Amino acid sequence: MIPVFDGHNDFIQRVVAAGADGTRVWLEGDGTGHLDLPRMRAGGMVGGFFAIWIPSPSGPNDAETVTLMQNPPFALPLPDQIDHDIALPHAFRQAAALKALERTGTLEIVTDAAHLRRSIDAGRIAAIMHMEGAEAIGDMDALHLWHAAGLRSLGPVWSRPTAYAEGVPFAFPAGPDTGGGLTQAGKDLVRECNALKIMLDLSHLNEAGFNDIAQLSDAPLVASHSCVHEICPSARNLTDRQLQVIADSGGLVGLNYASSFLREDGKRLPLEDLDTMLRHLDHLLAILGEDGVALGSDFDGALMPRDLPDASALPVLLQAMAAHGYGEALIRKIASENWIGVLQRSWDG
């Protein structure tokens, strides 16, 4: 089985929501969501980015919002900024939940490329502590504290503003050119992340913020879970110009499995087949090359395609790549090797 290393999941929220049963949900599954240890094992998933994320009072998975997103065009307003004092306890609970999974002996929070490889070789899930939206980071001293706790990947925003930058709204058809660039605090954050070798994630960031990070950062540019705007003109997707900027940096894009970011019509309905995913992959490969494309599922955070309902179905996607004409060496790169390579360049470079 070809191993899969994944660019983004929101599983930790389910662990926190389960309370005292959180570890059991990881070890045994509970019949919900997209991810748990048994389904990762069944699908050949050897690791990935586990996101710490602060929910807004309302969001894209609310029933009323889902109905709007099933009937484009739509343009949802950005949620309000969340105060640091509200965000921090949520983030602590999620980080603690990831640490609790580590204590089961089935998962390791990895902090460098060699550690990542050792964890996979030992048969443990290699987990990267990622933060999606920097609301819980009050200043650069706090960033150092989170780094000491294991944080190695950071997206300055989810789809709402922070003290550092602005996100893109959920809108279709629409582009990412909305809102202003990085604040001065955001520019300081980029420099400090570079110094600490914390990977910066461009997914959810608006175009002005993207441009600022591209100019400031000395690390490969990475979008952990994004799709192609040329195919699906969602504000969340990357334009060809943005893809070329990432390619020029030696960076990487992880393909998001969210149906509404894959479908040409932008509807929040299950993608009916995997051909559209393969079109996105073909487009990414044409611009980024064979070393610049990976996978970023958004498991437990988005509506999955009909034929890819959870992590256990990952071999179906890899088989579709093979049937589409991708050779085994390319499939292995997309499935895991490219993530490991860009992390080594980001962390050890």
Rank of each mutant, 00 (worst) to 15 (best):
G29A: 07
G29N: 05
G29F: 04
G29E: 02
G29V: 02
D30R: 09
T32G: 12
T32C: 05
G33H: 08
G33D: 13
D36W: 08
L37C: 10
L37H: 12
M40C: 15
M40I: 06
A42K: 12
G43C: 14
G47P: 15
G47I: 11
F50A: 13
A51I: 03
I52E: 11
W53C: 09
W53A: 03
P55S: 03
S56N: 14
S58N: 10
G59H: 11
G59L: 04
G59T: 11
P60L: 07
N61E: 14
N61C: 08
N61K: 10
A63H: 07
E64D: 15
V66Y: 07
V66G: 08
L68D: 04
M69E: 12
Q70L: 08
Q70E: 10
P72F: 08
P72D: 10
P73V: 10
F74E: 03
F74S: 05
A75N: 15
L76A: 07
P77G: 11
L78C: 11
D80N: 13
Q81R: 15
I86C: 08
P89D: 09
H90W: 11
H90G: 09
A91W: 01
A91S: 15
F92P: 00
F92L: 15
R93L: 13
R93W: 03
Q94S: 08
A96D: 14
L98F: 07
K99Q: 12
A100S: 12
L101C: 03
E102H: 01
E102F: 00
E102D: 02
R103E: 11
R103Q: 14
T104W: 00
G105K: 00
T106R: 01
E108L: 05
I109S: 00
V110P: 07
V110N: 04
T111A: 04
T111H: 06
A113C: 09
A113N: 09
A114P: 01
H115F: 04
L116A: 14
L116T: 13
R118S: 14
R118F: 01
A122P: 03
G123Q: 06
I125T: 13
A126M: 05
A126W: 03
I128D: 01
M129A: 06
M129E: 00
M129W: 00
M129Q: 03
H130T: 15
H130R: 13
H130S: 12
H130G: 06
M131D: 05
M131V: 13
E132G: 07
E132Q: 13
E132M: 04
E132A: 11
G133H: 10
G133F: 11
A134G: 14
E135A: 09
D139H: 14
D141T: 11
L143V: 11
L143I: 05
L143W: 02
L145A: 14
W146S: 03
W146D: 01
H147S: 13
A148M: 08
A149M: 15
A149Y: 02
L151P: 02
L151Y: 02
L151I: 05
S153F: 02
L154K: 01
